[in-house]
Simulated assay, not measured.
Amino acid sequence: MAAIQTRMQFGMGANEPLCIYELCNKLGIKVRFVDINIEGMYRRGADPRIMVAAKRPVARRAFTCAHELGHHVFGHGSTVDELEDDRSKDDSERPEEILANSFAAFTLMPTVGVRHAFASRHLAANTATPVQIFGVACNFGVGYSTLVNHLAYGMNDLLPVRATELLKSSPKTIRAQLLGKPSDAPLVVADGQWSAKTLDIEVGSHLLLPKTVAVAEGVMEPIAENGSQVLYCAVATGIRRAHGPNGWATFIRVCRERYVGMAAYRHLEDNDDEDDE
């Protein structure tokens, strides 16, 4: 309920994908990407701040930011969240951590929105393939395993035994299946049912788009055709509009790889934001 109320309070709707950094901005919380070996930090006070590790994948950063926002919404004190692999079981199972994780999940993946995403693709969570679930995860800007776990344990739309089977696949194996060969570059898939207004990606990452979608020049470069799709590589920072038939449109926003600085400036070529410390 807190996730839905926070979204709707700032006109972001109860079901569509959103940009967590824009939501934080509407709440008056500055977000900075920092070069530190943690997941994220929340600093409570008259001028609240969230700091997110720049080295983490784009989707992981978004979830971490939503998690730290959960600490703010529920009135928790300042927090430092260690890397997931470094956390003790006791730390991960503290009530405030479980609450912040749940808030993050339902803020980024609202139940109605996720169910609509599957329905619009004529899919059911329990029978969808890893590739199909990966596409829905991309639409909401979250990781593959994040969506699988949310479907199983947050929404109860996926049987736990099926979740265990799906988690045997990884983004690396899914990329190989989609591209027909191994690839180390992060990949985003935007299909014909893409519903997010924006698409965030880093320089050096790849993007699969339908052939029917046109992308304004400047930040994305086509590098291969893949059946009915075109594979692009993000080559420069900036924002460009992509559009296709039947009103399909989104803004592709490219930031530097492992960008350090204020989240609001991440798509600019030059970032002089030290005054915002």
Rank of each mutant, 00 (worst) to 15 (best):
A2S: 15
T6K: 10
T6N: 11
M12I: 04
L18Q: 08
L18P: 02
C19H: 13
C19Y: 10
L23K: 14
L23Q: 11
N25P: 03
K26F: 14
L27H: 00
V31D: 07
D35L: 11
I36E: 15
N37I: 02
E39F: 01
Y42W: 09
R43E: 15
R43M: 12
R44Q: 15
R44Y: 13
G45H: 03
I50H: 04
I50N: 06
M51Q: 13
A54R: 11
K55T: 11
R56E: 13
P57A: 03
V58Y: 03
A59K: 13
A62W: 00
T64Y: 06
C65T: 01
H71V: 02
H72D: 09
G75L: 03
H76N: 14
H76I: 00
G77F: 01
S78K: 07
T79I: 01
T79Y: 07
D81H: 11
E82H: 12
D85Y: 08
D85P: 02
E96M: 13
A105V: 00
M109D: 05
M109K: 06
T111D: 11
G113Q: 01
V114T: 02
V114S: 03
R115M: 13
H116L: 12
R121D: 07
L123T: 10
N126E: 14
P130D: 09
C138G: 05
C138A: 08
C138V: 03
N139F: 04
G141A: 09
H150P: 04
H150T: 02
A152R: 05
A152F: 01
G154A: 05
L158W: 07
L159K: 08
L166N: 07
S170D: 07
K172D: 15
Q177N: 08
L179D: 07
L179S: 06
G180E: 05
K181N: 06
P186V: 00
A190N: 06
W194T: 05
W194L: 08
K197Y: 06
L199H: 08
G204A: 13
P210I: 04
K211N: 15
A216G: 07
E217G: 08
E217N: 12
E217Q: 09
G218Y: 04
M220I: 01
I223E: 06
E225G: 12
Q229E: 13
V230F: 03
L231Q: 14
L231K: 00
L231G: 04
Y232Q: 05
C233S: 12
A234R: 10
V235T: 14
R241I: 09
R241C: 02
A242V: 01
N246W: 03
G247F: 01
T250C: 15
T250D: 05
T250A: 15
R253M: 14
E257C: 10
R258C: 09
Y259A: 11
Y259C: 10
G261S: 06
G261V: 00
M262D: 14
